[in-house]
Design a binder for these strands. Structure first.
Lengths: 214, 214, 214, 214
DNA sequence: TATGAATGAGGATTCATTCAT
DNA sequence: CATGAATGAATCCTCATTCAT
């Protein structure tokens, strides 16, 4: 494994554990047993490390989430999708603990983040549309858009929100699954009879996951 | 005005503007034209300033939000309530931009925050219950709880979320009102015919506010 | 009791407890429940407080130790004298924990200290001379002077020395009495048969004291 | 010469000159023409510098003073030993000017200091025993122990004591030699006829040294 | 590629002291 | 006499970053 990648990995790990502002470049170098000079040979500055982590995040996102065509959208696909979104967010959770501050310092990163958010929005919209046309949801356009926005907000805020809800909260996979359940809980009351069945099935799936992990 | 209060005010202002991690105690002192020594005469350390700001926040919260009795809950009261919650969050918005990090450093603050969150939860539940018993909502217990959780999450995350949704996003009152609208949008699809009317009225009110402020 | 005197007393107490460098003027004021301004009304600066404490010490010393005439010197007088010297040193023990540093900063104090030391020397010499002329000691002039010097050194260093001989050593009266015993132990091997008897008597007296205090 | 060692050396020099409490880490850095950051690259904090100086002292002590076997103890060896002890104390004299305060702050250092003191005690005891068995001294066990204690006290206190005996006293080598003479003066009245001769010889040696240095 | 010593501006904080009231 | 808010230079220390090797 290349040093550059090891740095990214170590930084990600340490940031997730202790928060980005509390991890210095020296911490990262020491953790890897390399010199600070070497770290700066591979990265111009700390910002660039964060940047690279985000790039990896965005890349992971893009390969997993080819914009879905409406016909492909099934309950199964949805499950896979939600699963993957939250897992990704978990993997890069340090990011969400400081998002406003990190983005303020780095306009370029802000731009990239917005693109990712846009992709998330597109996908959520596509799924909701597909649900509606499949007769699982019964909503007007405005309500559908509002629903999509809410889902995006919940997805994007979940980890940060949970971090603040308990002293010394560790974000585990169970917490992630509860996030998916929270989103399903938002969709369920809006579904048709057929839709409800599907959602309940998904919920059952995630309840299992939560219990297995607790 | 007492120096102690001026410090709290200046700190709040600067934190909101530039983010707490980017504002040093010297910045605050210089901004007020006082010496660093004087600042430390009034506060043992930076943490204590943040603490005091939070205490003020909690105090504001508590005097404005005496736990509502269910009979008092009307659409008008709700409007006043939501308005006030978001305004308060706006006033102390720096806090929300770094919540995980701020709380991690200060377990006492974490405790206080959870109490405030618990109060928020109680009030939201009281309102939703009242809505249901007033025939504005039609939901089972589990769904009602889920709804309340979603509303609390949206309320608690709105400012942080919005901060990340645009480059150099300034959180204006209009953004705040959109948060209220978002929450109403979550409630609306779940209301009865009578409930829908009330919600639409509230939405209309806030749409006006948004337009006035933009 | 006058504020000025209360300040001296409080400072002495705190200095003894925690060491002069670790006690700020604010500590002293807070301990007395007075304002720092008030403290500085009575004393130009911290140095002056130390100075005043020393003056009190020198005063105590002078009233207790009128240079002894040789004829007055008996074993009993000696006992009273040694007792008093060490008690005084105990009362002002903070001083001995930092003597070089305190004196370096304050030439006037250095001067006063030397005068006190000179008085100590005179008295020790007087006693030793008297012992010799009384047939208790058998020494040549040079040896007598050397003995007096040693005794002065031991007396002046005892508290500082003991402070360093155990972790977190508290200087108790027992430690003080051991100092007297140490000095008697220096004198004893040099005494005549008659002198030895006297010294052993004194030693017995102090051994009792030590045991009572332990 | 390594920067780390240069820092230790400069600190030692400045501490000796002006007293440890009066020398800041910035002083040391400036004195060496290096940045404060560099100093803190080599030492975690000021305490660690003091610690390192003491370690060097303890090391010097240990290599020079292998516990002496009784047969090796001759007047010549004693001379070398005393010489070295006082020289070492002179080299690290800042330490003795603040011993109580320095040890109070640093329990680990206190522990090391006590070990060094214990070594000193062992060596002094060994020498005195050897003197007695060689017929140079005539003392009972209790008196021998008492003598050893006195010698240890004088040795350990000499520099601190001398520092306080004159305004702005500079501790020169002559002062050191006088310390040795003081100790010899304590031993001399207790010696046998043969012993006295040896001691007088040593005294003569040191009187020469003092005169040469004054 | 990698080292690790070095930088230096800047951080939080302290404390003897002053001064208007 | 007394208050207590205010000063400001100084302290210890951090950390992102550089650079000669």
């Amino acid at each position: 494994m290349k040093t550059r990648d090891r740095i990214i990995l170590a930084a990600l790990e340490l940031f997730n554990e202790s928060g980005e502002p509390n991890i210095t470049t020296n911490h990262i170098a020491a953790h890897l047993g390399i010199s600070p000079g070497n770290l700066y040979y591979h990265f111009r500055n700390k910002e660039e490390i964060i940047h690279s982590i985000f790039d990896q995040y965005a890349h992971d996102l893009s390969i997993r989430f080819q914009p879905l065509e409406e016909t492909q959208i099934t309950a199964d696909n949805l499950l896979v999708y939600l699963d993957a979104v939250f897992m990704l967010m978990w993997r890069y959770r340090f990011f969400y603990a400081n998002l406003p501050d990190i983005l303020r310092r780095d306009p370029e990163l802000q731009e990239k983040y917005l693109q990712a958010q846009e992709g998330l929005h597109q996908n959520i919209m596509a799924m909701m549309n597909s649900f509606r046309s499949g007769g699982l949801l019964e909503l007007e356009d405005a309500d559908l858009l509002s629903l999509a926005n809410t889902l995006k907000l919940v997805a994007s805020s979940w980890i940060c929100y949970q971090t603040t809800q308990a002293p010394g909260a560790k974000i585990t996979k169970a917490v992630i699954y509860q996030g998916v359940l929270q989103m399903l809980g938002i969709v369920r009351p809006l579904t048709t009879a057929i839709g409800k069945e599907q959602v309940l099935q998904l919920e059952a799936h995630y309840c299992e996951q939560v219990e297995r992990d607790v």
